[in-house]
């Protein structure tokens, strides 16, 4: 009986988003504080008036690297309109040293934080997906995106442009 109820609950949870509309004002984003690659504290609330693309990546994730290079171009195009990429490195102690050289190699100019304790991951990306993006518009979570291939680029740019309107 318990098992049947659990199954029913699971099915229900799967059905709900499919039956609901896919647009909304979004839920309030939980604040966090972590150190960036220059050891300075960065808070999500520092960007409370902007459209933040919280991008989860790691140096061992090949699609992440491709996505970050493209995000740099989009960031340069829309930063004057209040768009910011906040790149969250999920690199642990084994690969953390590679983060800064990677940022330098690809000349990425947006803020990069290192979440070695998976604090932000726990709040926004509990499946530990990479690459994974969360769009936070003026303090509210409005969209999420998992995975990246270059064919996703037009959709990503359109999403950002629409949210900045």
């Amino acid at each position: 009986m318990i098992v049947r109820r659990l199954l029913a609950t699971s099915v229900l949870l799967l059905l709900v988003p499919g039956l609901c509309a896919t647009a909304g004002a979004g839920s309030k984003a939980t604040n966090f504080t972590v150190r960036d690659i220059n050891s300075k504290h960065v808070r999500l609330s520092d960007f409370s008036t902007k459209l933040v693309l919280l991008n989860f990546w790691a140096t061992w994730c090949k699609p992440c690297m491709v996505e970050l290079k493209h995000l740099e171009k989009i960031y340069q195009k829309y930063r004057s309109r209040g768009f910011v990429v906040l790149a969250v490195s999920m690199d642990g102690s084994e690969t953390q040293a590679k983060v800064k050289p990677f940022i330098r190699r690809y000349k990425l100019s947006f803020p990069v934080v290192v979440d070695s304790e998976t604090h932000i991951v726990k709040l926004y990306n509990p499946k530990h997906s990479a690459p994974f993006s969360v769009y936070i518009n003026r303090g509210r979570v409005v969209k999420q995106r998992e995975g990246f291939q270059v064919s996703d680029l037009p959709a990503i740019e359109k999403e950002i442009a629409d949210l900045l309107k």
């Binding site: 699971s10 949870l13 039956l19 509309a21 909304g24 004002a25 979570v141």
Partner: peptide
């Protein structure tokens, strides 16, 4: 339940209880 949940935004469900605003985030893998 669906009717209650549907008006909520697609990312995170917001509801009010005891005059306080709660947010519920779910990630399910079946």
């Amino acid at each position: 339940l669906i009717a209650v949940l549907c008006p909520a935004p697609a990312w995170g469900l917001e509801f009010t209880l005891f005059q306080r605003g709660f947010t519920l985030d779910l990630t399910d893998t079946l």
